[in-house]
Design a protein around this nucleic acid. Sequence first.
DNA 1: AACTAAATGCAATAATGTTGCAATTAGCTC
DNA 2: GAGCTAATTGCAACATTATTGCATTTAGTT
Lengths: 150, 150
Amino acid sequence: MVQDSIQVLQAQGYKVTKPRRQVLEILDRAQRPLSPYDIQRLLRQQGKYLNHVTIYRILDLFYSLNLAHKLLSTGGFVKCTLPSEEGCHRFMVCHRCGAIQEFVDPQLCLQESKSTRNLGFHTEYHFSESSGLCSNCYRKQLQKQGNAQP
Amino acid sequence: MVQDSIQVLQAQGYKVTKPRRQVLEILDRAQRPLSPYDIQRLLRQQGKYLNHVTIYRILDLFYSLNLAHKLLSTGGFVKCTLPSEEGCHRFMVCHRCGAIQEFVDPQLCLQESKSTRNLGFHTEYHFSESSGLCSNCYRKQLQKQGNAQP
DNA sequence: AACTAAATGCAATAATGTTGCAATTAGCTC
DNA sequence: GAGCTAATTGCAACATTATTGCATTTAGTT
């Protein structure tokens, strides 16, 4: 929810400005990663204008407050959908429709840390993204294949 | 080794050109991710000149042949250090000295796939990078802390 | 309503990527 | 080793993305 993010801003002493609300709403509605310029374009379609510098700065802020994440594989930003930081946030990205889903998995974190420790590395954070098909696109794929082999 | 990559190029019917050799050598020597322009700068320091477009194209080729990987957290390219593709290649990145280490872990792949499958996702590939300290930097860190508390 | 620090807009610039086409070259054949 | 040709590179122009300093505006307060 947008409201939650607004409360975080207030709690941390940041102003709740119109541009910040607008970016929050855009991110909240979009179910895919957006670049700063994506956001600018989407806003323009609604007749709203934000300088791209402003958007960069807002995204930096959101990122630093963990209100948004930067997807590595696409480079775009997504609104964090998890209540609080319970460790490393992971993503699944559907390479067909672009849908994303955020999740945490403490077990995986442990395993990853163990695995890298064995190689002499002291891990502090994991970046993890899985690429594949969401259930919708997977079903469609199966149907298409099914029709192709009568 | 550079030689291995050259053999892959030949085996796939690609020409072994001077620019390709030069980029291979730069990547091989660098123990950190390099952007196309990084590579151009490094070559220039050796009195060699490559058009940046050429470097982009060479990196695209190397990437498509799995001779190089693109690190997501930094955006730079690194030469693949593993013999062949035995699944998803993972990276540890030292955020202090920039050193990287590549590894595979089939067990982790399995766990990740299972984890995402439980969420209705059909994973085909994992992007995984761990950020932390390499053993060298970790030791230095400990020493510094040790000195600070007499 | 007035005040002030924080935030935004603006302008200029830097850095990074991309495209089409002409010139060059690696690897082949003779 | 000379000549051939498709593959590769260089060039030029352009598009996109990102950064900086400073003037202007605004949210939250008094």
